[in-house]
Nucleic acid binder design. Structure first.
Length: 299
DNA sequence: TTCCAGGCAGTAG
DNA sequence: CTACTGCATGGA
């Protein structure tokens, strides 16, 4: 990572495609927590309690990060750079995963077709959990609408060139809400209760990214997460993958995953958990990436 | 109209 | 243990 003149230049690894990553972020959904333009993404993020707004473009074998709202000191720039590396999962060598894909009779086409697609993270665990609750069992268009209402109502924003850029609401804010307030945003009673419960757990310090991280194994991380009401097997696996960058997660029950696996196995029904496990077996240690690539086949 | 979406908890057997 | 049900809305 190089920092010169208030800008950050991050070298990208082999098997990286900015275009594939942007495609993932775009996908036709209206997301309120970043903004995609032609060849760039603008993202608001908080570093050390300070609100930053960054624009990420592609350079020559690099990502170029520009600070849009202020010119912070080099230490902060360093942290912003690390955050971007985290978001795009840049510090991962995908050679082995690609070798496994290449050896696979049905999936080897992904090596060329999806080349360089990375696991785009949701570094904020609280946000990731809320997003799962919102997305549970409803169509993604409506899920994005619900998220937008939550963020625009209870989040904070900064303005850049006349446009507001929103930060996800703080747990302390959502923890103070009552169910009826979220129901006016068209949350179901259940989604409202789960969201407030998760916010309360974070606000009280019962749950945090560090607390989940400190568990010795993925299995125990899953168990810690699933103790929270509203967090089941699907959500726990999803957030371990997206927020903690664990590589061995399969969000069992995911309808998109079921659709993709059923299609490769030529089933006219949902695959059983055993069939999903068998399908994933050759990708031991790379399950999360395979999930991302299977979802990619659907869009 | 009915069915089902990037599920989950609660209950019954 | 498995099977079923309510939840909320919108698109196919």
């Amino acid at each position: 990572m190089q920092i010169t003149d208030g800008k950050i230049s991050i070298p990208v690894p082999a098997l990286f495609s900015f275009q594939e990553c942007l495609h993932f972020l775009d996908r036709g959904y209206d997301d309120c927590l970043y903004s995609i333009g032609d060849g760039y993404v603008i993202k608001p993020l908080e570093i050390g309690g300070k609100k930053q707004l960054i624009r990420i473009k592609e350079g020559t074998n690099s990502l170029e990060v520009e600070m849009l709202n202020e010119k912070p000191e080099p230490l902060i720039l360093q942290l912003v750079g690390r955050w971007v590396e985290d978001w795009f999962d840049l510090n991962r060598d995908l050679t082995l995963f690609y070798k496994l894909l290449d050896e696979h009779a049905q999936l080897s086409f992904m090596v060329e077709n999806f080349r360089g697609l990375r696991l785009m993270g949701i570094p904020n665990l609280f946000e990731a959990l809320c997003w799962c609750v919102i997305g549970q069992q409803i169509n993604l268009t409506f899920a994005h609408r619900l998220k937008r209402r939550l963020v625009e109502t209870y989040g904070t924003a900064i303005s850049y060139q006349g446009q507001p850029y929103y930060y996800f609401p703080k747990p302390e804010v959502l923890a103070e809400l009552d169910v009826e307030q979220l129901k006016t945003l068209q949350f179901s009673r259940q989604k409202a209760e789960y969201t407030i419960g998760i916010a309360t757990a974070f606000a009280r310090g019962e749950l945090s990214k560090d607390k989940v991280k400190s568990q010795p194994s993925s299995e125990q991380m899953l168990q810690k997460l699933q103790r929270i009401r509203g967090v089941g097997k699907w959500t726990a696996n999803y957030v371990l993958m997206k927020s903690l960058a664990r590589m061995d997660c399969i969000p069992y029950g995911d309808s998109g995953l079921n659709t993709a696996v059923a299609s490769f196995l030529k089933l006219d029904r949902k695959p059983t958990q055993q069939e999903v496990n068998n399908f994933f077996a050759p990708f031991n240690g790379w399950e999360s990436y395979l999930v991302i690539y299977l979802w990619r086949t659907l869009s």
